[in-house]
């Protein structure tokens, strides 16, 4: 397959992926916007005004970057896991597997689809948040890098989940029992400096904590990470490291036919 054909095929996947979540926007774009608006209203506005400061900022300011990241993570993951597993389940994935398209482009196509939804929802949520406070960003480059790389990482995670999943149960177990707790305990709503030392140390084993705090740092100019002696770069390396790891596992599994060929 020459490069032009590969490019066309790749565009076809990305276009189809975007078309899919746009067509069902009531299921894919509206709910996160509503959920996050409620979070802003309840935690930011109503309770937040009583909480006062968190990590040296207004609670609203503190919680906004966490909520945006939460939306990006959940939607990138959800898009890929449901789209890819859905195709596996309906066997329409075979339409792709019989073509000469190399596996890495199939993977990349789905990851870009997940990014498109993750980032679009992230943008919608950011836009909604402007109703509640004035956003100012300290380091645009860093914030864009963190948000995109996190979206890529969780799109890959969704792909891997779908690849190994054999039933619809399998695609809800990971988001519910692993990701949700890690996100909630990853410093979206609170600074881990509020925790006793033991639980701080436990929290530091949570990769999502680094992503949320790196993003918070890029927006506010400070986060738990530097206060606890970690550099922002270490968080970035970790994200990139996970991306490389998951990409390798995905490609290896695809080439082995794991989850897609009998």
């Amino acid at each position: 397959m020459n490069l032009v054909s590969q490019w066309v095929a790749f565009k076809t996947i990305v276009y189809r992926e975007i078309h899919r979540f746009m067509r069902i926007w009531v299921q894919t774009l509206v709910p996160p916007a509503i959920t996050i608006a409620l979070y802003f209203l309840i935690f930011g506005q109503l309770i937040g005004s009583r909480i006062g400061e968190m990590g040296g900022f207004d609670y609203m300011q503190f919680v906004a970057p966490g909520l945006i990241m939460m939306a990006v993570i959940q939607n990138s993951y959800a898009n890929v896991v449901s789209s890819f597993f859905g195709q596996k389940f309906a066997r329409s994935i075979e339409e792709l597997l019989i073509t000469p398209l190399p596996h890495y482009l199939i993977l990349l196509g789905w990851v870009l689809g997940g990014d498109a939804r993750g980032l679009l929802v992230g943008a919608i949520v950011t836009f909604v948040s402007l109703w509640f406070y004035d956003l100012s960003v300290v380091n645009w480059t860093l914030s864009i890098f963190v948000v995109i790389s996190t979206s890529v990482l969780f799109s890959l995670g969704g792909f891997l989940n779908a690849l190994f999943a054999e039933s619809f149960d399998d695609i809800s177990i990971v988001p519910t029992f692993i990701m949700q707790p890690l996100i909630y305990l990853g410093g979206v709503f609170y600074s881990i400096q509020l925790l006793p030392t033991f639980w701080q140390t436990v929290s530091l084993a949570n990769p999502i904590l680094y992503m949320i705090n790196a993003f918070r740092y890029s927006i506010l100019g400070s986060s738990d990470l530097e206060s606890l002696g970690f550099s922002i770069n270490s968080a970035l390396f970790m994200i990139v490291g996970f991306i490389i790891l998951l990409t390798t596992i995905c490609l290896w599994s695809l080439n082995k036919g794991r989850g897609i060929r009998s």
């Binding site: 032009v4 054909s5 066309v8 095929a9 076809t12 996947i13 276009y15 189809r16 339409e95």
Partner: peptide, 11 residues
């Protein structure tokens, strides 16, 4: 049309 795209046929 999508299947054509997968094979690299321009739209």
């Amino acid at each position: 049309v999508t299947q054509g795209g997968y094979y690299g046929l321009p739209r």
